[in-house]
């Protein structure tokens, strides 16, 4: 029963994360949404495998601990990246165009000066 309740809770949080990821352009919002989804994932990892003697299986617990540390590392790095991007371009969003091929040549010319950033040192 407990497991089933928390599976539903995880599903709801996962859905909220997906929603947040889709609707918000702000990178920090996206990171918050991803962190929600990660929490939902961790909850599932603990609840779904059968428990042993009333405690969750120690192996998934260790995996989740590892996952939490990896999540905070990734988030910290992503935040640093976001601050830098914000300083350079003045807004904390990524270019909305997903695939430059869809825009063809026009796009390439437009971003060419900054995209060809590889200059002689």
């Amino acid at each position: 029963m407990t497991s089933a309740i928390f599976v539903l809770v995880a599903a709801a949080i996962f859905g909220l994360g997906v929603h947040g990821l889709l609707v918000s352009a702000h990178i920090m919002r996206k990171l918050l949404a991803l962190n929600l989804m990660l929490s939902a994932l961790f909850l599932l990892l603990i609840v779904v495998p059968a428990s042993i003697d009333g405690h969750p299986d120690p192996v998934p617990q260790a995996l989740v601990l590892t996952g939490i540390v990896i999540a905070v590392s990734t988030t910290a790095f992503a935040l640093a990246l976001m601050v830098r991007l914000f300083r350079k371009q003045g807004h904390a969003t990524i270019h909305p165009d997903l695939d430059p091929a869809l825009l063809g040549r026009k796009h390439g010319r437009r971003t060419a000066p900054e995209a060809e950033g590889e200059r002689a040192p």
Partner: peptide, 17 residues
């Protein structure tokens, strides 16, 4: 999409249980 994702996760989780 969010509802679909939540439904999918719930189905997977409950089936696994």
């Amino acid at each position: 999409l969010a509802v679909l994702a939540a439904g999918m996760v719930a189905t997977i989780g409950l089936t696994a249980l």
